[in-house]
Write a protein that binds this DNA or RNA. Structure first.
Lengths: 352, 352
DNA sequence: TTGAAAGCGCTAACAT
DNA sequence: ATGTTAGCGCTTTCAA
């Protein structure tokens, strides 16, 4: 390989070029700044002749508008702030995809912030994002610091809290009731005759939605006089191997268990694979269920029972609310959209 | 539940409040705007007395600075644009995590754009992001439209292209050589005595890195007089079930195959599970290998051979380059960081 | 240590 | 259909 083939393009650039301004385009095209601005934004009447002239020079020069100046002058920012706990948990990328798919057909653009499940970090990220004056905010969960709630309420911006509907939203909310999800799963499990039930999930304080599912779950069991026999918790990200280890531990401790309820599909699938390796009869000897409905489960040897939480749909609906508020000043605030999660029985819940 | 418990906070807000300005804080505290600004940015000398007074009133009023105005005035934007093809492919969230982890300890903030693997969409997203005048750009791959490359070069902003080092970067690059990764995997496979080799992956034009791995792969095979016997391609996202189907199809067509090389772990794992279900002897009858090193593989019944691509590390290194350029004007441009991917032999490559 | 004036690059509002 | 003027809310620069 000869050297000259590898010379980076930047070599050609002498001084870090001052970015071009409207004025540059205006001068180069002989059209006023204002008209150039109109052309570039497709606003107001401009003759085809000048329009083309401007467009040509702008492209030729490689002009990139300065949205910062534009936003300051127009008091409009086409950004939607999206604040989520994590990117490693597949759930959130799915929500983001729903949001993007809706916003893609609009002038709005999403901007993502990640909190790592820390309320204080959420507060910081929120402050940071609000200081860019976005057109809307979508954030996960209903639990926030006092300061965060105050900022949201004071912002005067449409806010949509997503994922969870069990609580009081600041403005609009789109999600499912995790309490109800837990209750319904409990009822199914009892219906199929399981009675020695174990729960495996994240350490609760970190994860309000898992906690609510657990609360709904135990509540529905209690109604039938059943109690959760044993529980197993973990920290950090979910993985198949974590599911294996936890399952091994809980059954070691409580071999009488005939059902395991996992707080997400990843650890549930790990547990399932582990039990299969051990030759445990599923769902005869031990039944299994999890939560999320990720398509990871589709290719496993048997299908784990789970609950489809409609994350993509949640993203879409949230974005639609922001969009509506943006296009129409009078669109209603304080919307409430509760989706109905669907139990997928699979092969691990219903005794043959 | 009584009604008054559910009244949204927004009910209390009469007029969408005009956001507070520095002037408001200035008037409320009796300190000049300029000094308030200094306090809020921790710049210049301010007496402790005034500092506290300002901080107190700012907090009391709930002042949120307007970064738009700040950015315009100071010509500084603490945003790093990150442009990636997809969020559904676990690979990219991992890169983002690496980037965030580095930037978290700095004033910089990443902003993510998604291209859906479409060069024209990349161009649009890039234009959009450049118009916010970010402090740096990180984007996946070395293949971009002419216009995109022109914009990048003209932007005068530090640019880091990531994931792939096979090609000519605009400025800096951090990644691995996918050609080399393909070659090395081919050599391993031959070393273990496989000769009837099949390839399964995405449709090439969509995925330059998979294509380069394939090129390196076939090149290394050719050196030993071996050719790929059959290939199977797919569209859309990866999933275990897709891996199963593809594997079924290719073996149906070419039952003589004794090795399958997958372009990613997800479809590789699907194929592996499928073959296990069929009672195929792995790696005796058929050997398997994939690419990525996702921890999904850790909990499967046997460990699929793969190549760890160091995505988290790639994210970190890219962010560090941007950071360095930002803190020190004289930091070198045109950096080149090629990481060495590691083959993980697992249980599916080495014949016993 | 503090303040006053000017202006960042654009767009709203009002001419023409 | 096009141009002119006056800011948007901050920070830079200079003065006190």
């Amino acid at each position: 390989m000869s050297d000259d083939k590898v010379v980076p393009l930047t070599k050609d650039i002498k001084t870090p070029p001052r970015p071009l301004t409207l004025r540059d385009v205006s001068e180069a095209s002989g059209v006023s700044e204002m008209t150039v601005s109109r052309v570039l934004r497709n606003r107001g009447d401009v003759s085809d002749a000048t329009r083309e002239k401007v467009l040509k020079t702008a492209k030729q020069l490689g002009y990139v508008p300065n949205k910062i100046a534009g936003a300051l002058a127009s008091n409009r920012v086409n950004l939607v702030a999206v604040i989520i706990p994590s990117l490693s948990n597949m759930v959130f990328p799915e929500v983001l995809t729903g949001i993007s798919d809706v916003l893609d057909a609009s002038p709005l653009q999403s901007v993502v912030g990640v909190t790592n499940y820390k309320p204080e970090k959420e507060e910081t990220v929120l402050f940071e994002m609000l200081s860019w004056r976005p057109s809307g905010i979508i954030l996960a969960g209903l639990e926030h610091t006092e300061a965060s709630r105050a900022m949201l309420a004071a912002s005067g911006i449409p806010v949509v809290e997503i994922m969870d509907t069990d609580g009081n939203p600041v403005d609009s909310v789109v999600g499912i009731s995790h309490r109800r999800a837990g209750r319904e799963m409990a009822r199914q499990i009892l219906r199929y005759g399981y009675e020695q039930i174990g729960f495996l999930g994240t350490k609760m304080p970190m994860d309000h939605r898992a906690r609510k599912r657990f609360e709904g779950f135990t509540e529905a069991l209690a109604k039938k006089g059943v109690e959760v026999v044993d529980q197993e918790f973990y920290d950090g990200g979910s993985s198949l191997s974590k599911g294996r280890e936890m399952t091994d531990r809980i059954l070691e401790r409580s071999p009488e268990l005939d059902f395991l309820y996992y707080s997400n599909d990843m650890i549930g699938a790990g547990g399932m694979l582990h039990l299969m390796d051990q030759g445990v009869d599923i769902p005869g000897q031990v039944g299994l269920a999890a939560f999320n409905g990720t398509d990871l489960l589709d290719g496993l040897p048997i299908k784990l029972a789970t609950m489809e939480a409609g994350r993509y749909e949640i993203g879409r609906r949230a974005a639609e609310i922001i969009l509506a508020r943006n296009e129409d000043e009078t669109a209603p605030a304080g919307q409430r959209v509760e989706l109905t999660p669907q139990i997928e029985i699979g092969d691990t819940l219903k005794r043959p």
